[in-house]
Lab assay of single mutants.
Amino acid sequence: NQESVVAAVLIPINTALTVGMMTTRVVSPTGIPAEDIPRLISMQVNQVVPMGTTLMPDMVKGYAP
């Protein structure tokens, strides 16, 4: 099972992602793959992401799977 990126904290809208904001977990449905965390650093979320929420591609500005 592939791990997906999950919010480790509440991430406010338009916040640039940092390593500490993200964790990984096997979830269903799957979100952004864990191995993409290095690509996500400094990208901004386009909505509020509650802690424990799986990051989906459409939540991150400029992210393309």
Rank of each mutant, 00 (worst) to 15 (best):
R25Y: 07
T18D: 14
V19W: 15
N14R: 11
V9S: 06
T30K: 11
P29L: 10
V45K: 00
Q2F: 08
V27D: 05
A64I: 06
T23Q: 11
N1R: 05
D36H: 14
L55N: 01
V49C: 03
Y63H: 05
I32F: 06
E35K: 15
P57M: 06
V9Q: 15
P12W: 07
A64C: 04
N1Y: 06
Q44F: 15
G31L: 02
G20H: 06
M59T: 04
N1T: 15
A7Q: 01
A64F: 11
V9H: 11
R39M: 11
I37S: 05
T18G: 05
P65N: 08
I32P: 00
V26Y: 12
T24F: 10
V9L: 13
L40P: 00
S42V: 04
Y63W: 13
M21W: 03
R25H: 10
V6R: 02
T53W: 07
M21E: 02
A34S: 13
G62P: 08
V45N: 02
A34W: 07
G62N: 05
I32W: 03
V6N: 02
T53A: 14
Q44G: 06
M22G: 01
S28T: 15
A64H: 11
Q47L: 12
T53D: 06
T23N: 09
M59D: 03
L55H: 00
A34E: 05
P38C: 03
P50A: 13
M43K: 07
T53P: 00
I13Q: 14
P29K: 08
M59C: 03
M59R: 02
M51H: 12
M56H: 12
I13T: 12
S4K: 02
I37L: 07
E35T: 14
M21R: 05
R25G: 10
V48F: 13
P57I: 05
T54S: 05
N14P: 01
M43E: 10
S42Q: 15
L17M: 12
V9E: 08
L17V: 03
T15V: 11
P65R: 02
V27G: 10
I11P: 00
A64E: 09
I11H: 00
G20L: 13
Q47M: 10
A16D: 06
Y63G: 04
D58I: 12
Q2A: 15
D36Y: 10
P12L: 05
P12K: 10
V6L: 09
M21Y: 09
P38A: 15
N46F: 04
S4R: 02
V6T: 05
